[in-house]
Design a protein around this nucleic acid. Structure first.
Lengths: 236, 236
DNA sequence: CGGCGCATTGAGGGCGGTCAATTGGTGTGG
DNA sequence: CCACACCAATTGACCGCCCTCAATGCGCCG
């Protein structure tokens, strides 16, 4: 189950995993393209994504929103709600989703009883921040070609860690429009970049799967170093 | 003093401020354009910026680095070090700096004794993440003109909260090259954008100060909402 | 079969990058 | 006080990445 797998990666051991799993008060099922949490929402629960993909964005007047981060099974949706009252962004489903809901008070009791869970929460925030910085590089510094390569490297690495990937391919439920928006690209240019990556024999994208044809070539183009995704705990 | 002012804004009250101030084991003085922390560094201290400006960036092979975040007096430089062993980015001084150093073990004892300090740390991470998302919007979604306006709005708001700003102007020790790099712009285009903002009578930039000529106009261009910068605590 | 969503491709244009030169302010040495 | 160096700001000319508008192909499903 993805919850246990995810926790496993964060240096949390069996008793903590059981305690956290037992704190899930209910499991919500949500269809695709729904806003799960809105700007200014105030909630009393945390959510962990069990199945499906979600994204975060900030609504703006002028255009359709840019995707600011992606969540795959095992990722938390709103850990920040533990520390800040109001949402400052939207969390929306990109596919049908199953979501585990954990009340804040239960979560806080867990953190007091299991210090490792508190550290896991901190580490999640650190990794999310490190990821946002890479996305900033993708959008601001890198060319579209290199940025798309980096995003695909990241998503493959994360999907593999979540147990979603096969040897050299992983499911891609997003449209090219959506993936491009994560880089600040329009659908037309996102498609051209994907075509270039395909003709360079680095990746191929068929159906709802992306296949890595040449991992070494792809990581070299992207200057991808997966270290930022791997929570390496400080000394206890 | 900026340390106390900063803590004051985070919902930490007098006893915690005193305790934190007392935990500063030494104050380091650093000249401009020095790397304070490097990739892969492992340290046993946290640092709080007392004077000067610093930035964070990730070294890449191809170009000179893009600035990924800015710190002004009162900001912490490496709270993440409490939870993650290695630095995944560089922290560098942009001006001469004074830096308060707090050993991790002292900091952790503080967090155990004063739960509010632990929550402040979490909230700092949440605000830093929210800020990174705005920068991602600036670089990926907004035009250079709107992005520069947003960045100036943010820096003015932060400078004012840190007590650095006057009524409608604030010190800007960065060059246009550096400020542009935060948006993924070259110095030439950054300068053109600054000129456009000036000829639109929104801001003026003389010497080492930026003056806000028309705050309402500027925030409207930028779609700036300062809520993300204001830590609003969840219920205790 | 017809409709819909997504991928794909073409043509043209603008924002922002690159190269290059000039201005202006500040500090330093003659 | 002036000559000079140095750095940041400024401006021009040109180019290319990426956007916009538009049309077509393609797979899926009712």
């Amino acid at each position: 189950m993805s919850l246990r797998r995810r926790l496993d990666r964060c240096g949390v051991s069996a008793p903590e995993i059981d305690a956290l799993a037992a704190s899930v008060s209910r499991v919500a099922t949500i269809e695709a393209d729904r806003e799960i949490l809105r700007e200014d929402d105030v909630t009393a629960q945390c959510r962990i994504l069990l199945d499906g993909w979600t994204c975060k964005y900030i609504p703006l007047n002028t255009f359709r929103p840019q995707i600011l981060s992606l969540q795959i099974p095992g990722d938390f949706l709103d850990l920040q709600g533990l520390f800040r009252r109001r949402m400052d962004h939207v969390v929306a489903s990109l596919t049908p989703c199953r979501i585990g809901v954990i009340p804040h008070d239960a979560f806080k009791r867990l953190m007091e009883r299991h210090p490792r869970i508190g550290r896991m929460v901190q580490l999640e925030a650190v990794v999310e921040l490190a990821t946002a910085r890479r996305w900033l590089l993708n959008a601001g510094h890198r060319q579209a070609y290199e940025g798309m390569a980096h995003l695909i490297c990241e998503l493959f690495t994360r999907a593999a860690a979540a147990g979603l990937a096969e040897a050299s391919r992983f499911p891609m439920p997003l449209t090219q429009t959506e993936l491009g928006s994560a880089l600040g690209l329009t659908l037309v240019h996102a498609n051209r970049i994907v075509r270039r990556l395909a003709s360079a024999k680095l990746v191929s994208w068929r159906g709802r799967w992306i296949t890595i044809e040449d991992w070494d070539g792809l990581t070299e183009v992207a200057e991808f170093d997966p270290a930022y995704l791997k929570p390496e705990h400080a000394a206890p």
